[in-house]
Write a protein that binds this DNA or RNA. Structure first.
Length: 221
DNA sequence: GCGACAG
DNA sequence: ATCTTGTCGC
């Protein structure tokens, strides 16, 4: 289908694609490489998209791509993907190492229509994906204070409360991050991967590196 | 009408 | 997202 340009079309596309999300991991799912994706803004419509691929085990950077672009879709909570997807896909296309998992800077299923940026990326590429957000979209109780503690992230759904993700403490005493499934992976595995990607800081290395490259791109020529 | 609201 | 230095604390 065509890339939507209106709010109504964007919402309709999410409603249609949400049925394709897979929330389980393939029995043979192996994650050796992980990509971090992020977008930075130079102005309201000039953006830089980044895709960084890490070795999942050693956290060594295997490849990095930065692309600049323009965007016409405004920022609207819930329609975030329509603003950032185009650049991110361009960056992802140019990476030379195939990622086994995509880590998006935002929500996956923890979304009003259960189809956030991470779901868009996963369904579009068929690559397992997860969303790691700095802020929650949903309610949660404070997880335990030690690294690895987690609690359910819930949102109001058709049949009452739905567990849409998890508040995960990646370091002792820091604010939790909000993990939700994007596509082709289960929530437990998603959280385990985030912990593996965040051995030292609150945010996963994928997010940190992508963010650094992103603002480096928008601030310098 | 008022507050919420990923980046 | 972005505006942005030093500073308090482990």
């Amino acid at each position: 289908m065509e890339w939507p340009r209106t709010v109504d079309d964007a919402v309709a596309l999410q409603e249609r694609l949400r049925t394709q999300v897979i929330t389980t991991s393939a029995p043979d799912l192996r994650i050796d490489t992980v990509a971090g994706l992020d977008v930075g803004y130079r102005s309201n419509d000039t953006v830089a998209g980044v895709c960084v691929v890490f070795d999942a085990k050693t956290l060594v950077v295997l490849d990095e791509v930065v692309v600049e672009d323009t965007t016409d879709f405004p920022y609207i909570a819930g329609l975030f993907a329509f603003r950032e997807m185009p650049v991110l896909l361009r960056a992802l296309d140019r990476v030379t190492v195939a990622p086994d998992l995509l880590v998006a800077d935002g929500q996956g299923l923890a979304h009003p229509r259960r189809f956030g940026l991470a779901c868009h990326l996963g369904v579009h590429t068929s690559i397992p994906s997860i969303g790691v957000a700095k802020n929650a979209m949903g309610a949660f109780e404070q997880p335990g204070n030690v690294r690895g503690s987690m609690s359910d992230l819930v949102m109001d759904g058709d049949n009452g409360d739905e567990v849409v993700g998890r508040a995960l403490r990646t370091q002792d005493g820091v604010k939790p991050v909000f993990v939700s499934v994007g596509h082709k992976i289960d929530l437990d595995r998603a959280c385990a991967e985030v912990l593996r990607l965040a051995p030292r800081y609150r945010l996963p290395e994928t997010t940190r590196r992508a963010d650094t490259l992103t603002r480096q791109a928008v601030s310098s020529g």
